[in-house]
Every structure is written in structure tokens, then in C-alpha cells.
Amino acid sequence: MSIQSDQSDQQTHPLDDLLRKDRIPHIWCPGCGIGTAFSACLYAIKSSKLDLDHVSMVSGIGCSGRGAGYINLDSFHTTHGRAIPFATGLKLANPDLTVVVFSGDGDLFAIGGNHFIHAARRNMDLTVICVNNLNYGMTGGQVAATTPHLAKTTTTPAGNPETPFNLPLLAYASGATYVARWTILHTRDLTESIGEAIQKKGFSFIEVLAPCPVNYGRRNKLKPLDVLRIYQEKSIIKHFASPSELHLDLEKGITLGKFVDQDKPTWLDMYYKTTRKKS
């Protein structure tokens, strides 16, 4: 038997229609998990049955922030941390749009942390996908708001003295209506979850754990394949686990699943309700 390999460009990947093919290969390093998270996002959008002309992607800055540059839809690569407020303006000015924010942990939770909690509090109808690679990858591996305690980064050479955020807890406490966490290894669950989040009216948040082999992994002796094996061995799927009791460490394991799925009126629902009432 003989097997196809890539001898010509005639082969078409099932996602090629959603990719800006002229920009592939993307900038993400070998073994970087962002590509897989992005792929899950594209599969979810593709199978959503939405009119894709009305789907927009907004990204901030950083490795994951390059996501918007590779999707063949209306897409916006904005400033550092500001993807969510940009997306807010986009959504409010045209409520027919489905707006997906695809960005990283540094972008969404350090420089953009304030915007995240307020968009969640307002229940802005956005889907926010955060690729959490535990550090600032684009700038060479600095400590982030998500870096585990004692982990080594270029700006914490002796180990991180700080405590990281529990992102699903933060999202839940801020008022998000849909909160989930997956790893790139759980890509089927992830894709399904993104699909649900996109369909969901309100502020949806999905954290995706992904390896950063070059900048985080190298300094913490974590090869990408080993990280995925950890995801395989240490993950515990526990739907509707209390967001305050989620684990993300090698000893207690990694809690995955859909933690929050509730219905609340969106910001725009309430804006119409309050501004259009008869006095």
C-alpha cells in the first residue's frame, strides 16, 4: 500500500477554508499548544451553523493574540489587554455579530484584567477563550499572573514568589454565565465547550491549558510531550465543580470541566429594558 504525503499543495485540510492560508505556517513554536486551541476554536465555529460572515474574532497582544491574524473571518488584532473592550464596542454597535475573543493569559488577566472582570460583571455577550501557557511567551518567558508559585521564569530566576490566579474562579466571581477549563489534549471536549459557549447568550469564558515549550517549558524542565502526558495523567474532569475548589498542580491534579452554565440577561438586554421603559 502507498500513502499520501504532501507532494503537492492540492491537499486541503478541513480547516483551510477558515484559515488565512497565505499566512500559514503560523508563528507559534514547535510543540506550542496555541495552534491546537486555535484549531479547536475553528472547528467549533465551523460546526456552529452560524453565518460566518457575522462572526468576528478579536485578539490582544502576545502569542495567542496572533490568533485573529490567522482566521479567515472579520478579525481584529488590537492593543495589549484591550481585546475585550474593543469587542464590547463591536458587539454593542452591531448586536447581530457573534464576537469571539481569542487571547492569552497575560493579555486577558494582567494588563487586561480589569476589562475582563467588568465585561463578565456586565454579562457582555462575548465568548472569551484564554490560552493559558503560564507565562509571557512572546517577550521571552516572563512571569505572568498565572505562573505557578516557585516556577522559574526570566523575571523570577529564583522561582516565582507570587500566587497565580484561579481563572475560572475569577470569571465566576465576576459574573460569567459560562465557565469551563480544558487542556489542549482534551481537544474534543474543548471544541464542544467552545461550541456551547458561542451559542450561549452572555459572557462565556473558557480557559485552555497549553504548553509553552520554548519559554516556560525549557526553564521548568517540561518537554511538550511530557506536559501533554501530565494533562493525560493528572486531569480530573469534574463538571460543575465549585470554582473555588479547582486544582492546577502536579500533586492534587488538574480539575477540568464545565463549571458554570447559567442564564442571565445580557448587558444589552438590560440596557434596552431600562432605557426603553415607558415613564
Binding site: 481584529f76 484591550r82 464590547t88 464596542g89 463591536l90 454593542l92 454597535a93 452591531n94 455579530l97
Partner: peptide, 15 residues
Amino acid sequence: IAAMASVLGASWAGV
């Protein structure tokens, strides 16, 4: 910062 970002977003939605 957010105010200005939202203004840009709204403009790209056509208003």
C-alpha cells in the same frame, strides 16, 4: 482605556 477601545470597536461595526 476601555472607553477608547470600545469606540474603535464600534466604528468597525459601522457606526
